[in-house]
Every structure is written in structure tokens, then in C-alpha cells.
Design a binder for these strands. Structure first.
Lengths: 210, 210, 210, 210
DNA sequence: TCCTAAGCGAGACGGTACGTCTTGTCTTCCA
DNA sequence: TGGAAGACAAGACGTACCGTCTCGCTTAGGA
């Protein structure tokens, strides 16, 4: 059983996390000083260090929410296995909607700044989810691991590239349009790698795996 | 005529730039202090500030080389216009070879750290070159600008994603294999957007451009 | 009630002041660097700036002691008003004794170096005390202000001149001899100005007081 | 025979000296940087160092003029030996006139700032001249050296004190008034020391001279 | 209900790095 | 080829944050 935590502690930590997020939106991750956070959260500097050792620690703590949310998305999409046949990444649609709702925040995190850390974290999350999806589509040994990895990084980079651009652009596309575009781009890649190698490995795309 | 510059200046600046590059490979961009550079370059601290106002300034100055090199690549590929029919991005092959040769440096710049700045710069360069290529493949008004932008960011992100992964992975692929993989992934996207919209705009992928 | 000050502050400031004084004796005011002080006081450089903005500020803060001491001297001499008749500056005797006791310090401050600041401060203190004394000896409008000012500056300069010489000279005179000499020099000047200008020198002096 | 010096060198040195003097009047000795001088003199910084090693060196070089001028004053006053009987320091009158003429300069040198160096130099000059004068008034062994030194420092300090005050005060006194005041103050001191100690003050003084 | 342990604000402190400034030397370039 | 221009090393300055710490005040949660 977890010991019940002093409510002051929870309150303080929440204030810190929210202050950081606010400031990221306001002026970008890298420009934020510890003192900015403590002022915004209206706490003493030593109190900050009593709870978090680093700005990054606060950030990663805040990020847990997003992680769990995305996990929900992908879990839902996992339910309907028939969709594998469609060569679509089902979690992209709700992701676009979600991002669009918290546009300000994600602009700060991905679109412009966020100190790399955010980008890396989002990349990790996307990577993991796409990896799972791809694994499910492929037979155990086909295509070879290196090819799968390449594909996943290709897709992750592409998706983040489009999403970043989308966030930086005013009034460009609705979330559904972004999803549609991404799916149309992704489908051939998914089909090529996951099908080529599983259905008829012999007629593969010619890429030799060492 | 450009006024001849004091040779001491050129020597000093070169030393600074080289020191920075060495240090990036050694310990990553963000961890480098001005003093590290001055010690490595064996100059006084005030001398540094006499030439560059910022670490970033040095970096960007160093980057001019890469820019010009890439320009050469794309200019060469521009010669043969028939290749547009192949739906290939010709500059990728020499780029892969080049990166592979300076692997250490590019690992530092892109694969792992480089303080975002490097990533942004490389992104800009790729963006520009892909934009030119795409423009040449498309008719003036088809596909609409927003679609072209999306495509370009998709490709830039995807290419950087794969290259980053490639740099971080030991003994994975030869440069030619990376090129071959990227081309096979890119081709359908290029074909879809650049052809779909020009040959039969009516049967487009359904994405409306507002 | 004065708010109780953090004792750490008092301790740090005291250490700084004492370090400065030690260093003045050791190597002269002008040659002292901030870092010399912080090393001697065994504190961090930023701590120094947290308390004093300038070397001068420390010095002037240290000087308050001397000021109060001199104030005591002159206050004591003020008690006995009959002494005005003697044309003596009563505070000189204890001053000479005091200086002789802290000879090392005053040599640094006045006799040789002390960066002008010390000299100026001591000059101010002497000026003020002599001014008070002279005012008490004179009638309100006689002698005219300009004459009184001239006299005071004459005396201040003369006293500092002799004291400086005395400090720079080994084994020259005992404090009492210096006092005696100064009094014998000063007396005619005091008498001349303060008496001459009164309507009737014999009755005038010593009667009127503001 | 001294080789005739390149006139360019003389011109450059003169420019440096004049620039320094101008700047002293303008902003005080201590605040002047080498670069200020070189800019004012319109020369390169290395040129400065080719001629003078220090700001002080320039200053002392400039000061030679004043020295020689004062020498003239005192030499003239030496002519009339009867004046020794008057207990006056004859060189003070022309000194006051001279100072009044170059008031701006002397204000900078003595009255307010001049970095101590000026004060020290002037002090030295006065000291030397007063010493000569006093020596002439006294018998070889009376008064004892320590007494004479004390007197001289007393007078030097007093004179500089009054002159400094005079320079700092607008419209206070005419040069002659300053002289008259100083003489009236000095006379008793001179008389006391130089006569008292002689066996017979009336006949003693003014007879013996080296 | 009180009391005690703790969370907390305030801010002193030692550090590290910064970017600026001035000095005196040394090198380059030009007339 | 000798002197002016100015690049350079050295190092002090004052500033900005950092992360640790000590000090009292306040407050939560168990007795």
C-alpha cells in the first residue's frame, strides 16, 4: 500500500508542472530558468529542488499524461485487427485531433521549440506505437529486422515532419485532412514492406539484408 | 575586389571553427563552453569574441561548407532532366556517401546531439533542395501549394529519420542500401502527388485545399 | 525595533571588511583586487557582490568606525568650554595617540597610499570637527565665512601634512610631541582669525556661542 | 652633443602630452584610458607605447614645465635677501597668480582629481622650495632637523589645503587675497620656529647662510 | 485538541561561465 | 624598411544562474 502523501506535496508538484508547461508555451523550453518556474509556481527555490532535481525531470513527469493518452489510442486501434488489411495507422487520426485541441502546447513542444527533449520523447512514443503496429502486420522473420527498423524510422520522421509543419502553419488543414494525407503517404510504404516480404518473400523489393 | 584580409584573422577563425567541430564530435554541442573552444584553439577568450559573438555563430559559419557541398550535389542532379520521370531524388545517393565518409561528424550533428541547431540547418537545406525538385516535377498550380508543402515536409522528416537511425546504428547498411531504401519509399509518394494532380486532377486523393 | 539581521550576513561582511584592511596594510589600496579580498575573507566572489558593489563601498563601510571614534574625541573635548580660551584643538592629542597605536593601518591609509579615498575621508572628518570648533570660537558674523573656510582648510591641510610626515618617519616623535608642535603652530592662527575679527578681541572671544 | 631628434617624434610626444592635459581637465586623471589619449592625439595605440610606457610617464613629462616655472619664481624671490626678515614666502604670490591663470588645469590637477600623482608632484615641488627657504632662514643646527621637517610639512600641507579649497570655490578670493591670507598664517609659524630656536632671534635670523 | 514532524519561503552561500573591458606585446601590412 | 594599424593574450570585472545550505514559520495529520 502506498502511504498517503501529504497534500501540500501534491499541490506543490502540480504547481511546478503547470508552471513549466505555461512557460514552455510562453517562451520555449530552453529559455526557461529554474527561477522562472519557482516564480510562476509561487514557491521557494529550495522547494523546487526538494521535488525535482532538474527542469528535465519536471518535463518528463508532465509527459506521463501524454504517454498514457497515446497508449489508450493505440490500444483502441488494436481491438479491430481486420484493419491491418487497410495499411492504415489507426492512431494517427485521434492523435491529430488531440494535437489540434492542445495546439498551443504542441506548437511549443514540437513545432518550434521544446528543447529537443520533447521531440525525443514524442519520437520515442511514436516509435513504440508504430513498432507494435508494424510487428503485428509482419511475419516474425519477414521482413528482416533492419528493414523494419528503417521503415519505422522513416514513418516516424515523416509523421513528425508533417505534424511539425502543420502546427507551424496557420489555418492550413483540418485534423482529418492531415490524417488523410498521412495515411495516403504511409499506405504504400507499409504495403511494400509488410506485404512484399510476407506474401512472397522471393519477389522482394531487391534490398538485400546483410 | 574583396579587400585582402589579415592572415592572422583567417588563421584564428579557422582554428575556432575546427576546435568547435572537434569538440562537437567529442562531447556534443550543448556541453561545449566558450572556454573549451578557446583552449582547444589555443587562443585568448577575448580573441574569440573579437571574431564570433556566439557559439552558434561559429557553428553556422562552419556550416557554409556543407551548404555549398549539397548545392553541388543537387546542381549535378539537375543536369539530367529525364530523371524526373524516375521519381527518384538524385541527390540522396551522393549525400549518403558523403555522410558515410564524415560519419563521426554527422553522428554528432544529427544522430545524437548538435543542439538542435544542426538538425534545423540540415532540415533547411534538405527542404530547399527537395522543394526545388518537387517544383520541377509539378505543374505550376497542381498540386496546390499546401499539398506540395505537406509532401516536402513528409519527405524531409522521413529522410532525416532514416539517416539519423542509420548514423546511430553500427554496421547496418552501406550508403547505397540506404539510398535504395529511401528511393523505394519516396517514389510512390512523389508519383502520387506529382502525377495524380497533373495527369488527372479530378481523380485526386480527395483532399481539398481551402 | 531593528529587525534582527541574519548573523551569516554580519559575519560575512565583517570578514570582507577585515580582509580589506589587512590587504591595505599589506599592499596598498589600489593594488587590491576583488578576488584578493574574497580569497583573504575566504568567501565566493559572488558573495562579495551580494554585500558590496565596490571595493570603495567596503572601505567606506569600514570607515564608520573611525568616524565614530573621532566623534567621541571631539565630544569629550567639547565638555570643557573653558579650553576655548587656550586656542588649542583638544581632539588632536587623543587623535595622535590613537593613530600611533594603529600606526600600521594609518600608514597605509594616509602616509603612503589608501587610494585617495582614505585621505579624502579623513580630510572630511577633520574638516567637520575643526569647523565645529572654530564656529564655537567665533561670533556669528565675524570673521566672514570665507575667512573661516580658509582657516579651516589651512588647518586641515597642515595637520594632515604633519601627520602624514610623522607616519612616514621612523622614531621621530612621540604622539605628545606631535600634539605639542601642532598646537604651537595652530594657536596663533586660531587666535588671529577668531580674535582679530571680533570687535574687541579681548572680550569677544569665548563669550558668544550659537 | 645630443643628436637632434626627429621632429616627428617631438610632434607626436607633444600631441600626447597635450591630449593628456586636455583629458585631465575634461574627465580627471584616473578615468583616462590610454586609448582616450591616442584618440585625442590622433595616433595609433602602439605609437603611444613607442614613446611612453605609462600614462604616468606622460604626466611626469608634462610636469617638467611647471617645475621649471616654479623654479623661476623661487629664484626670483631669492634675489632680494632682505625679505627674509619679513617672514614671508615670496614665491606664493606669483604662484597664486599663475594658478589662477590656468585655473581649469589646476582644478583638475589639485582641486579635485589628478590621481594623487599630481598632488604628490606639487607637494614635492612646494616641499623643496619651502625647504630651501627655511634653510636660509635658520642657523645650521637650530632648530633641529626634525623640527624643521615638521614645519615644512606643516606649511606644505596648509598651503595645498588652502589652494585646493580656493580652486574648488567659485568667486571666492583674488590671488592677492589668497597670498595675503597665507602669508598672515605662515608668518607666525616661520617666526616661531626659525627665531625661537636661534639663540637671539633678533640677530640670528638672516645672518648665517650656507 | 494539541504537538510534533514536515513542508515550505526566504535567501545566504560557493561555484561556474559569461561577455566586456583595458592593458601591453607582437605581427602584419603599407607607404 | 620603419612605423602605423590593429590582432592578440592575459586577466579583472560585474552579472546571471546554478544547486546546496540554513533558518524560522506554518501547517498537516497522528496522538
Amino acid at each position: 500500500m502506498e502511504k498517503s502523501v501529504d497534500r501540500r506535496i501534491l499541490r506543490t508538484r502540480k504547481a511546478i508542472r503547470e508552471a513549466l508547461i505555461d512557460l514552455i508555451v510562453l517562451k520555449g523550453y530552453d529559455d526557461i530558468k529554474i527561477q522562472d518556474i519557482t516564480e510562476k509556481a509561487d514557491i521557494g527555490r529550495s522547494t523546487f529542488y526538494a521535488h525535482y532535481s532538474t527542469k528535465d525531470a519536471v518535463f518528463l513527469d508532465s509527459f506521463i499524461q501524454l504517454k498514457s493518452w497515446l497508449k489508450t489510442c493505440v490500444d483502441m486501434s488494436r481491438v479491430d485487427r481486420k484493419r491491418i488489411l487497410t495499411h492504415r495507422l489507426e492512431f494517427i487520426a485521434p492523435l491529430c485531433v488531440h494535437i489540434n485541441e492542445d495546439r498551443k502546447l504542441y506548437q511549443a513542444l514540437v513545432g518550434h521549440r521544446g528543447g529537443g527533449l520533447a521531440r525525443d520523447e514524442i519520437r520515442k512514443i511514436l516509435f513504440e506505437h508504430i513498432r507494435e503496429d508494424v510487428e503485428r502486420r509482419c511475419q516474425p522473420r519477414n521482413p528482416p529486422k533492419v528493414m523494419r527498423d528503417a521503415l519505422i524510422h522513416y514513418l516516424v520522421g515523416a509523421i513528425i515532419g508533417v505534424l511539425s509543419w502543420w502546427l507551424d502553419t496557420k489555418n492550413s488543414w483540418a485534423p482529418e485532412e492531415v490524417d488523410e494525407f498521412l495515411q495516403s503517404m504511409i499506405a504504400p510504404s507499409l504495403e511494400k514492406i509488410c506485404s512484399d516480404y510476407s506474401v512472397s518473400p522471393i519477389s522482394g523489393c531487391g534490398l538485400s539484408d546483410e
